[in-house]
Amino acid sequence: MARNEQLIRQHKLLQLLELSRFGRTLEELRGDLVADLGLTKLHERTVRRDLEALQAAGFDIQSETVQRGRVFKLGQNTTDVHEIGISATELIALSIGRELLYPLMGTQYWRGIETFWNKVQEAVPNGVFDHYARYRAALHVFGSPSKSYERQEGMLKTINRAILEHRLVEIEYESIGKPVSTRKIEPYGLAVYQSSIYIVAAVPGTTTTDQAENRQRLRNWKLDRFHHATLLDEYFKPDPQIDLSKYLGSSIGIFSGDSTTLVKIRLGKRSAAYLREDPWHPEQSLEDLGDDQTMLTVPAAHPREILPKVLSLGADAEVIEPAEFRETVAESVREMVAHYT
């Protein structure tokens, strides 16, 4: 664990030095590390040893004495390593990706995106950038909700560290319609879905030999509902059978999991055309029933994720099975009719 903590500190040191144009003193670096990594204690001697280890690894970390003391900063040889060649098309693709990640604004991820974007702009020749600017003016990205996680930056840092070190986190969490409650979670990873950040975590408990049952302990916790997150000095052993890519990709929405249900939805001609253009899931299937009717079969983990999609198609879509999913939509429709009668 100590080795892992050392690597995290050294990686953060490089980030701090990259962001510092005029260098940082040992005391300043120590203070930044304590704040950013949520440490309870850290000696300046440890910071000095980390700097020496980075220098021994080949990083050009220089020091000089200025009015406020001895400062450390990255030399020119370090920045030269990151120089890259990039085309106008690649620059356009990168800028689109940057705009799609606006919900991360204010977090450490966004600072990384911005510093890299600034480096790219400084590195490309003027001709390439002018070509990019002309074409980029004709392409617009919109439709993402205006959202920022700047207020939750500290909690994100805590959760990131817990993921890397396999440590438990105590959270104050407020589910919609319920009072704030204190929980312990075992965080496995983060997920960004429709401009919201979710923490994929398990509730601590006695594991069993049933792999599927262990994976069912996973849940997606929405960061917007966190009031506080505290890193605990308790560790958990990650389940090697948990595959986050499989877990998150199994369903059409954020209600992910290993247990999904195949839902059959009868579509009219227009809705079927929409679903061919914009599929709900890569594993969906569309079967022609004749008479301008099509049967959509799509995996889903929860009736609530099917509901808004079906309602958006109006009377041109009807859930056929399973019964639980059909009744969820039917109940919503009955309530809507009552409101509009």
Rank of each mutant, 00 (worst) to 15 (best):
M1A: 08
M1T: 10
A2D: 02
R3Y: 05
E5N: 09
Q10C: 05
Q15G: 04
Q15T: 10
L17Q: 03
L17C: 06
E18S: 08
S20K: 07
S20D: 01
R21Y: 13
G23A: 01
T25Q: 01
E27P: 01
E27Y: 04
R30H: 05
G31P: 01
G38C: 00
T40L: 02
E44A: 06
T46Y: 00
L54G: 05
Q55N: 08
A57L: 14
S63R: 14
S63Q: 14
V66Q: 09
R68C: 01
R70L: 11
R70I: 09
R70C: 02
K73W: 06
T79P: 05
V81N: 07
H82I: 15
E83P: 03
G85M: 06
A93D: 08
L94P: 00
S95Y: 09
Y102H: 14
Y102A: 15
M105G: 06
G106W: 02
G106C: 03
Q108H: 14
R111Q: 14
T115G: 09
K119V: 01
Q121D: 00
N126L: 15
N126A: 13
D130Q: 12
D130L: 11
H131C: 05
A133L: 10
H140C: 11
G143F: 07
S146T: 14
Y149K: 00
Y149V: 00
R151L: 06
G154R: 15
L156S: 07
T158C: 09
L168M: 12
L168P: 05
Y173I: 04
E174A: 15
I176S: 14
I176D: 13
G177A: 09
T182R: 13
R183Q: 10
I185Y: 02
G189V: 08
I197L: 10
Y198A: 07
A202Y: 07
P204R: 07
G205C: 13
G205H: 15
T208K: 08
D210H: 12
R219M: 11
L223E: 11
F226A: 03
T230W: 02
F236V: 01
P238E: 02
S245D: 15
S245M: 09
K246D: 08
Y247P: 00
Y247N: 06
S250N: 06
I254N: 12
F255S: 14
G257F: 03
D258G: 15
K264Y: 03
L267T: 08
R270Q: 15
Y274D: 05
L296T: 06
A301H: 14
P303I: 04
E305D: 13
I306E: 11
L307D: 09
L307N: 12
K309P: 07
L313Q: 11
G314M: 07
A315L: 14
D316S: 03
I320T: 07
E321V: 00
E321L: 04
E324N: 07
F325M: 00
R326T: 04
A330Y: 12
V333Y: 05
M336Q: 10
V337W: 03
A338V: 10
